[in-house]
């Protein structure tokens, strides 16, 4: 104990090392998603049900171009799973965190705004690993046999897609009211899943959507995942589209995000 009770602490022990702060935040974010019932439903249960439905319900007839139904649909379901976590779930969580002052409080701790964002993105990636393992195991049980060369390429696609959709999530979360984000994020997911080239390949979509879907981040991610797992390639066009969306949305989010 100090003899002069008003003497300030000579040296403040300071912050924990940056890596430890970010790891703590990553675990915190991932756990928040995986422990939340609704989030778990959207991120894991819905994609698995979509997979089973698409593969088992024969009434839904598509030309699978010679592939088994499971090989045809699984990459799209994985793309959908990536979108649920990096976009819908992240947008809603960040919007409510923003409304409740969580973002502001965190930004006053040693974590700071950058640490908070890094933790959020890494948390999303952790949840995606869990999703991909669960969906992959389910698909494998249903007979999925992906192209082995595609596994590494799919990682590239997942990272690029996550970057684009997390940027979109933060743009939406940082500019709209929390209730509006809830509606927009769910509606956008549904529309993109069905008509954005995610579950159904762009070239099977009706009319101009065939071309529009290829320009959307959803279509680019869907096509990249399909190419990776079905042919062991990564379409350059998808990479260009995802990088461009990331740059545009990230720039928008950085400029327009309101912390208050």
């Amino acid at each position: 104990m100090s003899t002069d009770e008003h003497a300030p602490r000579a040296v403040h022990a300071g912050a924990a090392p940056a890596r430890r702060r970010v790891v703590a935040q990553t675990r915190f974010e991932a756990r928040a998603i995986l422990r939340n019932g609704e989030q778990l439903l959207v991120t894991v249960v819905v994609p698995v049900l979509a997979l089973v439905g698409l593969v088992k319900v024969e009434a839904f007839d598509v030309d699978t171009a010679g592939l088994s139904r499971i090989d045809f649909f699984t990459p799209g379901v994985l793309a959908l799973a990536v979108m649920t976590t990096s976009f819908t779930s992240q947008a809603i969580a960040s919007a409510f965190d923003r409304r409740n002052g969580v973002l502001r409080l965190h930004s006053t701790t040693p974590l700071g705004r950058r640490g908070l964002l890094t933790g959020k993105v890494l948390g999303v990636l952790v949840v995606e690993v869990v999703q991909i393992v669960v969906i992959g195991v389910a698909a494998f049980a249903l007979g999925w046999r992906p192209d082995a060369r595609g596994v590494l390429l799919s990682v590239v696609a997942v990272v690029l897609g996550t970057a684009a959709f997390t940027s979109l999530a933060l743009l939406v979360a940082g500019t709209l009211r929390a209730e509006a984000v809830l509606a927009v994020a769910n509606l956008a997911l549904l529309l993109l899943a069905v008509a954005g080239g995610v579950l159904v390949p762009a070239d099977r979509l009706p009319g101009p959507m065939q071309h529009i879907a290829l320009l959307l981040p959803s279509g680019a991610l869907g096509e990249a995942m399909r190419a990776a797992f079905q042919t062991g390639t990564l379409p350059p066009w998808s990479v260009v589209v995802l990088v461009a969306w990331t740059a545009a949305l990230g720039w928008g989010a950085a400029r327009l995000f309101r912390w208050h």
Binding site: A13, G14, A15, A16, P17, R20, R21, A24, F28, R31, A32, R35, N36, F96, D97, N100, G101, V102, R104, L105, H106, T109, P110, L111
Partner: peptide, 25 residues
């Protein structure tokens, strides 16, 4: 903060332990 700023989905003790991890001592 006046409006709290606490994440709502975690337990109270976890929240405090999490914030504590941001500091060296």
């Amino acid at each position: 903060l006046q409006d709290g700023g606490l994440p709502t989905g975690v337990r109270a003790a976890e929240m405090l332990e999490h914030v504590a991890r941001m500091y060296a001592d």
